[in-house]
């Protein structure tokens, strides 16, 4: 049965207990607020500077991706946009790792494009990912593109495990896209 996108939300939890719960639309302000909240939680958990930056930047990147590529994104005032989706950060205190998960609805035709971008990064070590990022930036500059694919390279560099992506059919031409990173 298709899920109701209006019920999707954003929340942060530690182990099994929610410590932050935001329900609402994804827009510029909610991304800023969520990033701030995540930053505070990491500081509270004494995360080091690198971990703090990794989780903060991935939070922003994943939420901005939802805003940029969701099928239900719509324009609001002043050239800003609004969308729906789920974003979750779970801190596993025993392992001192953070699990970041996002879920949003995309056009089915985007599935292959995302799979292609993620597959090309599989098996690359950090040095190779950095080299690939620079190649991408040079190509984007020369072709007047807008850094296509850099977000997934950033994710691949920061995640401890391979980027985990899942697509589920929702209805014709719409899939639920689930992304999971471990930091």
């Amino acid at each position: 049965m298709a899920r109701n996108i209006e019920n999707l939300n954003i929340f942060v939890k530690v182990d099994d207990g929610d410590v932050y719960n935001f329900s609402g639309k994804i827009n510029e302000q909610s991304i800023i607020q969520s990033a701030k909240d995540v930053e505070e939680i990491l500081k509270f958990n004494n995360a080091n500077a690198t971990k703090l930056q990794d989780v903060y930047e991935l939070t922003v990147e994943m939420m901005q991706n939802m805003l940029n590529y969701s099928v239900d994104t719509r324009k609001i005032e002043n050239n800003k946009r609004e969308s729906t989706g789920t974003f979750r950060v779970t801190y596993i205190s025993s392992d001192r790792i953070y699990i970041l998960e996002s879920s949003n609805f995309i056009e089915s035709k985007d599935k292959e494009l995302i799979e292609e971008k993620v597959k090309i990064l599989e098996g690359l070590d950090d040095k190779e990912l950095r080299k690939f990022a620079r190649k991408k930036m040079r190509a984007s500059k020369d072709n007047h593109e807008k850094g296509a694919g850099l977000g997934f390279i950033m994710m691949a560099r920061k995640t401890l495990k391979p980027i985990d992506i899942v697509f589920e059919n929702i209805k014709n031409n719409v899939k639920e896209f689930k992304l999971k990173l471990v930091v």
Binding site: Q53, Y56, E57, V60, E61, Q64, A133, R134, M137, R138, S140, K141, K146, G147, L150, G151, I153, M154
Partner: peptide
Amino acid sequence: LTYFNSSTTQIIFD
């Protein structure tokens, strides 16, 4: 810069 997104990474390169 303390934090920046991947688009900014490209901007800095440019």
